[in-house]
């Protein structure tokens, strides 16, 4: 999986490309936790090019979400493919994470104060 990081105003945007699984999630975990520790208050994770996620990937996002809440930062996941979204739904995580259909919607959610 390729992980690219860019910044749009105050938002740190992670662009993921590939499969988020047992093999690749440790690197993603390290980068996400680093961003949270560096007090990135707004994090957008764009999953448009992620075709596959497993329970290790879900665990990575759950851990990042929990740590972000403790650090008073916010995370929005954007542009989930249907196969990826369905895995979140089976684990009932679609109601836990802020999910956006587009990057603009995700940026809008991050700009508002009521984002989970």
């Amino acid at each position: 999986m390729k992980i690219s990081l860019r910044r749009k105003n105050e938002v740190h945007i992670f662009d993921l490309d590939g499969e988020v699984d047992f093999h690749t999630s440790p690197e993603l975990r390290a980068q996400l936790l680093k961003a949270i520790e560096q007090q990135s208050s707004r994090i957008l994770i764009n999953l448009k090019k992620v075709s596959y996620i497993d329970s290790s990937g879900l665990a990575t996002f759950v851990e990042a979400l929990q740590k972000s809440k403790r650090a008073n930062s916010r995370i929005v996941l954007a542009q989930l493919e249907s196969a990826v979204r369905s895995v979140f739904e089976i684990a009932r995580l679609d109601g836990v994470f802020s999910l956006a259909d587009s990057e603009d919607e995700a940026l809008d959610m991050l700009s508002r104060s009521d984002t989970r």
Binding site: S55, L58, A59, V62, E63, Q66, V87, A91, R92, L93
Partner: peptide, 14 residues
């Protein structure tokens, strides 16, 4: 427990 309150533990459930 769903949704999970901690990371991990979803594999066999899936």
């Amino acid at each position: 427990e769903l949704p999970p309150q901690k990371p991990g533990g979803l594999g066999i459930y899936l």
